[in-house]
Design a binder for these strands. Structure first.
Lengths: 229, 229
DNA sequence: AAACAAAATTCTGTATGCAGCATACTTGTG
DNA sequence: CACAAGTATGCTGCATACAGAATTTTGTTT
C-alpha cells in the first residue's frame, strides 16, 4: 500500500504500529552498546560526554539520554558529578549472572518444548547444523554468532516476552566477557556436545531434559570464561 | 568517623563508595515510578513533558533523561515523535511475567537456603510474624507492604546481585497490578498459608520445598490478579 | 451538513549556554 | 624536597532556545 515502485528502501508503515522510523536515540544506544561489547570502551573507562558526542556526531543532549538508558540496562554506572563509567564486573557478578541465565534458559527450554511449532524447531535444527559445519571448520566467529542465535531462538520459542526481555538484559551485560572468553579445543568440544543434546531434547520435546542441559551448559560456561575476568 | 555531633541528618560518606549524594535524576525516576504504581498516571496515558516537568518542578532535560530510564525498565513505551506513554500490560504480559517471577523467586529461595545466616532467617521470621499480626487484624496495607518485604528479603538472602536486579525490574512492572488486585478473604487465606510454609521451609533450609512453594505461590498470584487486568 | 484541505498551534527532538562542582595544577611554606 | 593550600581549568547537570514533526482547528467545497 505504501509504495508500488520497486527499489524504495523500506515501507514507512508497519502492520501493527502506525509509523516506525529509526530514531537517533536507538542508534546511539546500539552504537555505544557495541563499543562496550567489542572492547572499544573498556570496563572502567570514564565516558566523556563532549568527546564521545563529537566522535558519534551528536550533541550532548541525546547522548546523555542514551547513557541513562544504558545505565538502566546495567552496562554503565553513574557517579553523581563525575559522569558515566563502563561498568566493571567482578568475578562474582559474572558467576551470579550465569546462574540466573542458566535458570532463565532452563525455563525457556521448558516453555519452548510446550509452545514451539514443528516448523520452528526445524529452523533451530538448521541453525544447529550450520553451526556444526562452522565447528568442523574451526571457524570461531560464525560459530560464536550461530551459538548466540540458537540460544536466542530457544528464548523466542518460549513465546514469553517477559522472559526474552530479562534474558536480553542479562545477556547484554555478559556479552563482552563471552566475547573474549574463547576457550581451548577440549572445552569447545564439550560445549558442542551440550548443543547436540539440546537440539535432540528440543526435537523430542523433552522439557525436563532440555531444561537440565541448558542449565548445566551455563554452569560450564562459567568454567570457560572465569579465566578472562 | 564522619561527624561526631548528634542530630546531623546523614553522613556524607559511605563505607564503600566515595561520596553519596541524592541526585535529581534518581528523585525524578522514583517519583514518576510511584505515580505509575499508584495509578496517578494510568496505563496508556501519554506523558506530556511540559506539564509533567512543571508539575515536578524540573525542566524538560532531566525529566526526559528520567523517562528514558523508565523506558529501559519497561514501565514506559516510546513512540518516536509522539513521546512516552505509560505501558499497557496485556493479560498475557502479566501471566508471562508471573511465570518468570515464580522461577526467579524459586531460584532465590534455593540460594537463600544455602547462603543465608541464621540471624538473617530470624529477621525474616520476624517480618513474617509481624505480617501475620496484620492479617489477624485484617489490616490490608501494612500486610501488603510486609508481604513485599518478605519476598524482597528472600531475594536479598540469595546474595545474588544479578538475581535481585532482574527481579526488581520485573517486580516494578507488576507492582501497579498487584496494588489493585486485592483478593477476597478465601484467597487471602490461601496466600497466608503459602507464607506459613515458606517461612517453615526457609527455617528448615529445605531448598526444594521453599523453591516449590515460591513458584506455586506466584502461580496462585495470577488467579488473584487476573480479574484486575 | 459532512468531508477534505490548509493553516495554526502544540509538542517532541536537538543544540547551545550557563552555573556549580570535581579535579588538576601551581605556588607557597615548613 | 615534600606537602598543603589556593587557583585555574574542565566537566557535569540543568535550563533555555530553536527547528521540525504531529495534531488540532478552522475554513472551504461539495
Amino acid at each position: 500500500m505504501a509504495s508500488e515502485a520497486a527499489g524504495l528502501p523500506v515501507d514507512e508503515f508497519d502492520v501493527r504500529g502506525p509509523i516506525v522510523r529509526p530514531t537517533l536515540h536507538d542508534a546511539i544506544v546500539a552504537r555505544v552498546r557495541d563499543m562496550i561489547i567489542e572492547g572499544e570502551l573498556a570496563a572502567g573507562t570514564r565516558l566523556h560526554e563532549g568527546n564521545l558526542g563529537k566522535l558519534l556526531g551528536v550533541s550532548r543532549t541525546p547522548l546523555r539520554e542514551a547513557l541513562k538508558f544504558l545505565v538502566s540496562e546495567g552496562l554503565l554506572e553513574l557517579s553523581p558529578g563525575r559522569g558515566a563509567v563502563v561498568r566493571q564486573f567482578t568475578a562474582k557478578d559474572v558467576h551470579d549472572s550465569l546462574i540466573v541465565l542458566g535458570n532463565l534458559e532452563g525455563l525457556a527450554g521448558r516453555l519452548a518444548c510446550e509452545h514451539a511449532t514443528d516448523a520452528e524447531i526445524r529452523e533451530v535444527r538448521q541453525l544447529h547444523d550450520h553451526m556444526m559445519e562452522m565447528y568442523e571448520k574451526r571457524d570461531r566467529l560464525p560459530y560464536f554468532k550461530l551459538n548466540q542465535n540458537i540460544h536466542s531462538a530457544i528464548l523466542r520459542l518460549s513465546k514469553n516476552e517477559a522472559l526474552v526481555s530479562v534474558h536480553n538484559v542479562l545477556q547484554a551485560r555478559l556479552k563482552r566477557i563471552r566475547y573474549i572468553g574463547n576457550e581451548g579445543p577440549e572445552k569447545w568440544a564439550g560445549a558442542v556436545a551440550d548443543h547436540e543434546e539440546m537440539i535432540a531434547a528440543l526435537e523430542a520435546r523433552d522439557a525436563d531434559r532440555l531444561s537440565t542441559v541448558l542449565n548445566a551448559h551455563m554452569q560450564k560456561t562459567w568454567e570457560r570464561v572465569r579465566h578472562a575476568i
